[in-house]
Structure formats: C-alpha cells, structure tokens
Design a protein around this nucleic acid. Structure first.
Length: 152
DNA sequence: GCCAACGTTGGC
DNA sequence: GCCAACGTTGGC
C-alpha cells in the first residue's frame, strides 16, 4: 500500500464536501506529472492526505482512501465543464481520475506553516520551493510522522 | 491582488 | 529540439 497527498481548493471541493458525499470522483487533474502518478502509482486501498490550497489557511485537513484506481475522467469531454479539454479525443483520452472514499477529517488541520517549520519534514514534496504538483507521493515515514502530529 | 515559479504552446 | 511568450498555481 502507498501513501499520497491530493490538493484541492476548498471553495471548489472541500473535505467537508467529501464527508457529506462519502465518495467522489477526483476529477480535473490537468497536469501530466500528476496524471502519471494517478496512472502508474495510485492503487485501490491507498491512503491519501487531503490538502486545502489557495485558501485562508492552507493545511492537511483529513484522510481519504482510494476506492477506484485510475480511469477516464469524463469531464475532459464535457464542453460545459471547466475541465473541458478540446484537444483530448475519446480515441486516446488524456486525463484520468481516481475515486476516493472519506476516511476522516482532522479536528485540528495540520497547517502549512506547521509543516514548513518542522525539521523532520524537510524532504516533504509539498513544502519544497515552487511545488505546484496536485498529486504527490508521501513516504510511509512522513505519513506516520504527520498522522502522529494531529494526535497531539 | 501581486508575483515567483513553474508548465505548456507553438513558431522556427 | 530550442526557447520566447503565455497561462497557471498557490502562498502571501
């Protein structure tokens, strides 16, 4: 089993939305490196940190589990979707999505400030300068360290 | 709203 | 294949 971190803008889709729906298709990944992680790495049963970005308090806010591995993201073919990609064809679709299932919402989000300040997380991809990846791997060591942070 | 740090596009 | 121009991300 592997560990991941997915970014989302809470104004668009938040951990609360996921908690209410219980499952969701993680649509709209439009970056090749992120897509390749979805395609080649993310597997059924993997665990995912949900991270809120572009908001007042950027933070890891909870955990989800992969409930379906990579499959075609239909929003790329929907002209009314903000994720529509006119250059993608049904013959060779460009973009993939996975499905996620709600696991838990942290009572206290682990803020970006806290993550950046932690000397044990200097290799954490999220906090590296200029990181714009929306899907990234998390090492088991980082996963366990961070999940322990929210119990204190 | 600003802007640094990217990623993508397309002409050549 | 290079690279300038452009678009996007995301913290601040």
């Amino acid at each position: 089993m592997a560990y991941w971190l997915f970014k989302t803008e809470p104004d668009v889709f938040s951990i609360t939305d996921l908690a209410e729906k219980n499952t969701a298709d993680w649509e709209g990944v439009r970056n090749y490196q992120a897509r390749n992680f979805l395609r080649d790495g993310v597997a059924l049963g993997d665990l995912v940190f949900i991270y809120h970005s572009s908001c007042k308090q950027p933070a890891i806010v909870g955990i989800a589990a992969i409930s379906k591995s990579a499959h075609i993201d239909p929003s790329q073919f929907d002209p009314s979707s903000e994720y529509f990609d006119k250059k993608s064809s049904s013959d060779s679709p460009r973009w993939l999505q996975v499905s996620v299932e709600f696991v838990e919402q942290f009572k206290q989000p682990i803020t970006l400030t806290k993550l950046k300040a932690d000397l044990n997380l200097t290799d954490f991809i999220l906090t590296q300068k200029g990181c714009r990846l929306s899907v990234m791997p998390v090492t088991p060591e980082q996963w366990h360290y961070i999940t322990n942070m929210c119990q204190t």
